[in-house]
Simulated scan of single mutants.
Amino acid sequence: MRVKPRLLIVEDEPSILRGLTDLFVFHGYDVDSAVDGKEGLTKGLTGNYTCILLDVMLPSMNGFDICNALREDSRTQPIMMLTAKNEEHDIINALTLGADDYVSKPFSTSELVLRVNALVRRSGWTGANDRLELSHQVSICLQTLTGMSYQKETKYTRKEVEILDYLHHKNGPVSRDELLKNVWGYKETRDIDTRTVDIHIAKIRKKIEVDPKTPKHLLTHRGEGYQLYKL
């Protein structure tokens, strides 16, 4: 059974809040809201939200401070900043504090939905099982970027999880070029150093293999690419 993604909207303008709530409910989200900065921070820290849509200008606590506090608590929580400001320094400030994306008012509602959807997808949320089980001893949570590997708690980077998730959905070997295009997002790979992929694969093997030099889960097929196996 699929569950709805949970969205927290922190916005003090009643008309905008109503419009955004209706918009995202229509697009399949379970929406919660807050009209005050401190209330938004409390909900953001205690709730389990797929994404937080955060206005900058708020009563009691501004969005920049909320974003900073949320990011200190969780490095994986998807955060979208929403503000009337569009000065470059505000955008830099938001992204420096850990926001994943930034949209300025007035905005296109269709663009906003697309960008929130994209952020949710990049976060690893699937609406179904968010855990990748490679064996009874190796499992990874795609949302929290953590897992258990041979009775040891293991932390992953976002890119490592994206690689594992992509390989998991493929039935055969995946080339370096395909990973660079579909995980890193490069349109052209001719001038890209493919050692970037090799380095990430090596780091993943150290986390999921008993012996990274003789891998059982993440294998290299010479001339074809990488393939992920469940045992």
Rank of each mutant, 00 (worst) to 15 (best):
V25A: 14
Q151W: 05
S123Y: 14
T194A: 05
W125F: 15
K38S: 11
G98A: 07
S104G: 01
F26M: 13
Y229M: 02
D198L: 01
P78K: 00
V56L: 10
L132R: 07
I92N: 10
D177S: 10
P5G: 12
G19S: 14
R75M: 07
G172W: 01
W184T: 08
G98I: 06
L167Y: 11
F107K: 12
H217F: 15
D90W: 12
Y150E: 12
T157D: 15
A128I: 03
M57G: 08
E87G: 10
R205Y: 09
K230M: 07
N182C: 02
N68F: 05
V183G: 04
T144I: 03
S33I: 10
L180F: 03
F26C: 05
T220I: 04
V25L: 06
E11G: 14
K43H: 00
D30G: 00
S104R: 04
T157W: 11
D65F: 09
V25P: 01
L82P: 04
T126G: 13
K216Q: 14
T21Q: 12
S104L: 04
N48I: 04
V174H: 04
R190D: 13
A202C: 08
G28E: 04
D165C: 03
D22V: 13
I79C: 01
D177V: 06
E162F: 02
E178T: 12
L20S: 07
E160N: 09
L228G: 09
G19A: 15
A69H: 15
E153S: 13
I16S: 05
V116K: 02
K85S: 03
K207S: 03
S33D: 04
A34W: 13
T46L: 03
V103H: 06
I199P: 00
M57E: 14
H136L: 04
R122F: 10
E111R: 09
I79Q: 02
D36A: 09
G44V: 02
A34P: 15
R121Y: 12
V103Y: 04
V116C: 00
L134N: 04
S149E: 08
K152R: 13
D22Q: 09
L58K: 04
A202D: 11
E162N: 07
T126W: 11
T144F: 01
E88T: 15
